[in-house]
Amino acid sequence: MAKIDTTSLVQNMLAAVKQVLQLHWSDVRPFAETEMQKLAATAAQIETGQAEGTITQAQAQILLSMQANASQAVLTAVETVGMIAAQDAINAAIQVLTTAINKAIGFAFL
């Protein structure tokens, strides 16, 4: 029966986890940065609009409420993508382990 080399197994599992996490991070990072910049810009627009008289106080109140809502949406997205990344990282590690075990015992047990 083949033996499992835990050192290389752990290395392979970590490599799989890293690859998955990087994939999600490369998506979520530009999204979070862009959205935070946009939210800051809209706050400035509301302030300027009110100062210039193009946005009334009633309109500003609604827009600020919409902004709070949109900010929550961005944070929820980042949190959810983080959970998806964690899920994928665990499953990628399980997949490496499954392959190693099946190879060691000589047939597709798992």
């Binding site: 998506d27 959205e35 609009g49 949109a70 998806i84």
Partner: peptide, 27 residues
């Protein structure tokens, strides 16, 4: 300014939702 700001904020809601869909699709 009202229309422009409101549109940007609604877009942020949609982009957040679509970001989750993208991550799910990748997953």
């Amino acid at each position: 300014a009202v229309g422009k700001t409101a549109r940007q904020l609604i877009e942020t809601n949609f982009e957040s939702l679509l970001q989750i869909e993208l991550a799910k699709k990748r997953s």
